[in-house]
Every structure is written in structure tokens, then in C-alpha cells.
């Protein structure tokens, strides 16, 4: 194990990460999108979430509705709608040119549309047959479009890492009912002071909270004094797939007291939506950013490492 640790320390990418024993994902965006993608909601029609949405028709049904009502903008209807797509960016701006990343040329750039409240997302769906600790790490920075030459430090409302996690179904063989939960952390870029929040009791949506402030969540991330100078931050979130608890959370030198906290659906989800049907073992990992004003906002990821260790199955 010491040899393994020494080898990782000497690795140009992993040397600045703290992965658990087993590497599941080592994504350096100098080598492509690595499976990170935009989000497109389920589009086969659904009506199982009456607490939040009216029944959502299938895509053919929406198109038929639009024929009957030419004034209906079908792209404004769930699950359709405009969305900004993630891309590989060299962090190129009018003043500096291409800045590149922490260690390379390309970052995963997650943009928003230039509309207040819009979220930009990049998703990677893992399916994990076993359990144990799971750690997400990245180096990230965020900015607003510099087109108005203003700093725009509060044009970004929030950046977040959110997960949709469902237990594998073979738990039933030992008498356990599989659980769905939404571990997530969110940095609120509040003009009164930045702070971290967590999903502890929300059931609005994977990305939608409601979010709980962490008691020790105050943190000022480095935005810089220029709209086009980027400061990279390290982030680490560890969850336990066996106990459905947060294990640790760290950003840029500060460890937050989250061990043992859990996300519980409150109010509880009902029916199919609460279940793990069709998605057993899912760990959908979502990085995102939310615009506070009508400006494009960008979350950049230099690289992402996801690692795991420890359960009775031998991870």
C-alpha cells in the first residue's frame, strides 16, 4: 500500500489528489470529454411526481399538442427546453487569450444560458454494484462572461456537486430494501459572504434542494479581481454507500464537519419516483452552476477523480 501511495504521489495528476484505495474515474479533460454530458430529462412521459409536476407527456404527445396549438412553444415544455451544453475549453478570453488549465490546455466547461436562474450541468452516470465509501474530487473554478467588462463576482449564484444514488437490488437478498438518496453540496456565492450548503432533508429535486446551510459552512472562494483571471480550487466529498451518510467534505483547505449527516427525503417521495426501479446501483454525478443574472456563467473542471474503498465484498 505504501508503494501504491508513493506511485500515486509521483503521478502528475493523482499527485495532487487524495483518492481512496480503488480508482474508478480519473478524468483529465486534456484527453476528451471522458463521458461527461449534458442533461436531458426522461422523455417517455411521467406522472409520478404530483407533488411537483403536472403529468409530463411523451415527446410525440408534446409535438401533437403543438400542432393543435401553434402558439405553444414545445421547447418550453418539460422535458424539452433550451439548455447550454458542456464543452472542452482552453479558457480563452479577449484579454489574456488562452489561459489553459491547472495542468494542461483543456478544462470541462459547464455553461449556463444567459438567463437568471438557469443551471448549467454536466453529468456522469456510474453504476456501482458494490458498496462502501465513495469519494469525489475535482479542481474547479467559476466565472461569469466578461462581455460587459465588469467583475461579475455575484453574477454566479451557486456552484454545486449533486448525486442521485440508488442502492443495488441484490440488497434484497439479505432482507434490506434498496434506498434512493441525493447527497449534494452547494456553494452559495452570496454577496454577504460565501457559504456551503448540503442536501440533508430536500425532496424537490436532485439539484433543487431545499438546501441546508452547514453550521461551519462559511468560506470565501477566490474569484480574483479580474473577470478573466481564474483561481482553481480543490474540492473533496466522500459519502458512504453502505450507511447512506456523508463521510467528509473539504474545499480549498477547510474541512467541514459533515461526518454522519444524511440526506433524508422530507417530505418523502412517493411511488415510482421514490423507488430504485430501473436504476439499481446508480450513482449519477452532476457538477453544475447557476446564474444569478442574465449572463452566461461558467464552471470549469480541470480534472475529476472518483475513488472507492471498503465493504464486505472486497472493495
Amino acid at each position: 500500500m505504501d508503494l501504491a501511495r508513493a506511485l500515486r504521489r509521483s503521478d502528475r495528476l493523482l499527485g495532487r489528489y487524495q483518492p481512496l484505495e480503488r480508482l474508478l474515474v480519473v478524468d483529465d479533460f486534456d484527453h476528451g470529454m471522458n463521458g461527461w454530458q449534458g442533461l436531458f430529462p426522461d422523455y417517455d412521459g411521467w406522472e409520478d411526481y404530483p407533488e411537483r409536476y403536472a403529468p409530463v407527456p411523451t415527446v410525440p404527445e408534446i409535438v401533437a399538442l403543438s400542432r393543435a396549438d401553434p402558439g405553444l412553444r414545445i421547447d418550453r415544455r418539460i422535458p424539452l427546453g433550451r439548455r447550454a451544453m458542456p464543452m472542452l475549453s482552453s479558457l480563452t478570453s479577449w484579454d489574456i487569450g488562452s489561459q489553459g488549465t491547472w495542468d494542461g490546455t483543456y478544462a470541462l466547461k459547464i455553461p449556463t444560458l444567459p438567463i437568471a436562474g438557469e443551471k448549467g450541468l454536466a453529468v456522469k452516470r456510474l453504476t456501482l454494484p458494490e458498496r462502501g465509501k465513495l469519494r469525489f474530487e475535482t479542481y474547479f473554478c467559476y466565472k461569469a462572461e466578461p462581455s460587459d467588462f465588469r467583475l461579475g463576482e455575484h453574477d454566479v449564484r451557486a456552484v454545486f456537486l449533486a448525486c442521485d444514488v440508488m442502492d443495488p437490488h441484490h440488497l434484497r437478498e439479505r432482507g434490506e430494501e434498496p434506498l434512493r438518496w441525493w447527497p449534494a453540496v452547494r456553494y452559495v456565492n452570496d454577496p454577504a459572504g460565501g457559504r456551503w450548503q448540503m442536501m440533508l432533508h430536500g425532496s424537490e429535486g436532485v439539484l433543487d434542494g431545499p438546501w441546508d446551510d452547514l453550521p461551519d459552512g462559511r468560506q470565501d472562494l477566490g474569484f480574483n479581481r479580474s473577470p478573466t483571471k481564474y483561481q482553481w480550487h480543490y474540492l473533496r466529498l466522500t459519502i458512504d454507500l453502505t450507511t447512506h451518510c456523508y463521510v467528509d467534505f473539504h474545499c480549498y483547505g477547510k474541512e467541514f464537519a459533515v461526518a454522519g449527516k444524511r440526506h433524508v427525503f422530507d417530505p418523502p417521495l412517493t411511488g415510482f419516483r421514490a423507488s430504485t426501479e430501473r436504476c439499481p446501483g446508480l450513482v449519477a454525478t452532476i457538477f453544475g452552476i447557476e446564474a444569478a443574472r442574465d449572463k452566461r456563467c461558467f464552471l470549469y473542471l480541470d480534472s475529476v477523480v472518483i475513488s472507492a474503498e471498503g465493504d464486505e465484498a472486497g472493495w
Binding site: G32, M33, G38, F40, V59, I62, V63, S66, R73, I74, D75, R76, L80, R82, M85, M87
Partner: peptide, 14 residues
């Protein structure tokens, strides 16, 4: 060689 496809509009009503 790497390639990448990006849907930038889907069912966009123009």
C-alpha cells in the same frame, strides 16, 4: 481520432 456530437437545439420552435 476523437469525435464529439453536441445537440445544441432539440425540438426548438423558431
Amino acid at each position: 481520432r476523437r469525435s464529439h456530437t453536441v445537440p445544441i437545439e432539440l425540438f426548438a420552435s423558431l
